[in-house]
Amino acid sequence: MTALLSIRDLTVTYRRDGSEVAALKHVSLDVAAGERFAIIGESGSGKSTLALAIAGLLPGSSKVGGSIEWKLPNLRLPHSFAPPSVLPDMSGRTEGGATERRPSAIATSHMPLGGRDIGFVFQDPSASLDPVMAIGEQIAEVARTHLGLTWSQSYAKAKSLLERVRLPDPDAALRAYPHQLSGGQKQRVAIAAAIAAGPKLLIADEATSALDTIVQAEIVALIRQLVAEDGMTLLFVSHDIALAAELAERIAVFRHGELVELGATAQIIASPRHAYTRALLDAHLGLDAEPLLRQAGATR
């Protein structure tokens, strides 16, 4: 298993009202190329901060210590000592010499480019889509920016992406605006935009939390299929350990900014080592769980 990125001793602090709050404390972990990796935690666990740090999207006011080392073989950045391609070259083929570098506080060996090397899907699709831009244009813009296509090629690409995320009537959807779509459809569009440039890494940060159970299951199935087809690495950030267990091969459990437990899904679910992981599993209310009603002894 070749590592895609290697995080060492990562600490992130935010300044809030004059005091410093540590959102992540001395986190070290590796994400392997092509794996489905879940980050689990409750609110305040630092799971979203980790996702943002990996994507290079932390707010400028945050202080970052430690390192995130990328092992992307084909980054086209000045100073990157790109070895001969190991993975199929997807992003570099049209980028030419034009490169841009995003300022980032993180000490990284080679910083990948958000949107091209990393696709990010947020919890609220309404907030990540431009309300006054047609769906097709939003997706085409990503393809055009990162793949160097012409507008007509980009639109063709956008249409094929909408077909891939199984949006009904992709031709109509190209011209539709976000408010005309349901929550689940908007999230499909957001996923299409995230994968438009063929990223190596897809980060889904609570991407299904705002959706109802049926749509959530559909989106999870879609993510699973897209990741498999494109050979992407998946970082699935969620508060729901049962949902993560259905999708991920490895699970990292976070609490109060610290990595509590990391292991293969089967091991985490069947024999958790840490008490907190056990508590999370016990708190899950599955369909087969013992009803609280009977435990409480309440009868009508």
Binding site: I241, A266, I268, A270, L287
Partner: peptide, 10 residues
């Protein structure tokens, strides 16, 4: 509904 299968493999 997400299901946790806590006995067998993941």
């Amino acid at each position: 509904a997400p299901k946790l299968n806590r006995t067998s493999q993941g």
